[in-house]
């Protein structure tokens, strides 16, 4: 009896599953990055990352009768790339006597050091208001938490100052309408990273949007690290600072001596 009930249950769930796939249009999206690792070497002066993919429209095997891909409604893509979150300090200069000096400061809890969003069309045309709120992809929607209570006016001023700063450093960017979609199937987005990009793990989200709603999201990861001499020097300086200091002195003494030695030779 128990075996029989198991089989019936299995059968029922299979039938239901089939019916489900036939009713709902199930697009598939495949995405990838031109590189999953960005290496900061001594020649690093910023880089570009290509995010590409394909949209696959599910057409049912039974002959296309259930195919409800609506002609005339295009797909839109939203790509969001963000780095790990870290605490940051924002300072504000004020006039003290005749001099501009840092006076106010706030600690921002857990904010992205890099944030880029790029889309096929302006965000407000792609997403409904609710969806836009839900996704929170626009730079203006980035959550910025202060470590202490801040008045509303201050919060807005610091927030705007922060975003302006990050945009000026090219660490935050929002480019709408720069993703190109080919034949409603292939898409490609190019994102620029400046030389001062933070290291660590990055998260790349690709959202497929149709008719104002996000219907699919794909996530992949990207690793940014210093390699070679850059990495050695950087981690040496931070992990063994005393030893690094001594080596810096020895290198300087030797280089200085060598320089003097060579100039004497040339002089003679």
């Amino acid at each position: 009896m128990r075996v029989l009930s198991h089989i019936t249950r299995l059968l029922i769930s299979c039938i239901c599953g089939l019916a489900f796939t036939q009713q709902v249009l199930a697009e598939r999206m495949v995405t990838d990055l031109s590189s999953h690792v960005i290496e900061i070497t001594s020649k690093f002066s910023g880089t570009e990352l290509l995010i590409f993919g394909a949209i696959e429209r599910a057409i049912t095997k039974s002959g296309g009768g259930q195919n409800i891909v609506v002609e005339g409604i295009d797909y839109d893509i939203i790509v969001v790339v963000q780095s790990e979150r870290n605490d940051m300090i924002i300072r504000r200069k004020e006039m003290i006597g005749p001099i501009w000096a840092n006076k106010g400061h706030k600690t921002l809890k857990s904010v992205q050091g890099y944030y880029a969003v790029t889309t096929t069309r302006p965000l407000d045309q792609i997403l409904s208001r609710e969806q836009s709120k839900l996704l929170g992809a626009a730079i203006d929607q980035i959550k910025i938490n202060f470590d202490e209570p801040v008045s509303e006016i201050e919060e807005r001023a610091y927030r705007e100052g922060f975003i302006r700063n990050m945009k000026a450093k090219k660490l935050y960017s929002q480019q709408e309408g720069t993703i190109s979609v080919l034949d409603d199937i292939l898409f490609r987005a190019i994102l620029a990273f400046p030389a001062n990009m933070p290291v660590g793990n990055y998260q790349v989200d690709v959202h497929l949007v149709r008719d104002g709603e996000v219907i699919l999201s794909e996530q992949s990861s990207l690793e940014v690290g210093k390699i070679g001499l850059e990495r050695i020097i950087y981690s040496f300086a931070h992990d063994h600072p005393a030893f690094y200091g001594i080596v810096a002195i020895i290198v300087a003494l030797f280089a200085g001596w060598l320089g003097g030695f060579l100039t004497n030779r040339m002089g003679k």
Binding site: L229, A242, Y244, G245, A248, A252, A255
Partner: peptide
Amino acid sequence: AAVTFLHSVNTQTVDVMLALILLIGAVIGA
């Protein structure tokens, strides 16, 4: 040298690569 050591330990702000490049220029310029 003492300052190099102290800054390395306290603030990690000594850039050996930068120092060496400047030195090469300085030796020739001098």
